[in-house]
Amino acid sequence: MSNSSDWPLWEVFIRSKQGLNHKHVGSLRAPDAQLAIENARDVYTRRSEGISIWVVESNNLFASDPQDSDAFFEPSESKVYRHPTFYDVPDGISHM
């Protein structure tokens, strides 16, 4: 790696304004985290799209397998009691 011309791939996450989560926007190539952040600034925030940047080397990112998505995500669909609309509230009650 030390003499390679291939820079590793980094995933870029941008917080667009205070109060919002960082959101994945894309990727880029950089030799180190410092330059990855600087490049992300120049590539992904040219129009003031962000106030904070995270970069993660793509190698270090682990994802759930879409093949497992049934097992992963469908069980929660039956847990309707987690949502407030599941409950009846008598008329006249507000702020709940």
Partner: peptide, 15 residues
């Protein structure tokens, strides 16, 4: 630009 890319990789590895 190849030497530039290599230099940056080499520096990152040294660090």
């Amino acid at each position: 630009g190849m030497w530039v890319r290599k230099a940056a990789s080499a520096h990152a590895a040294k660090r």
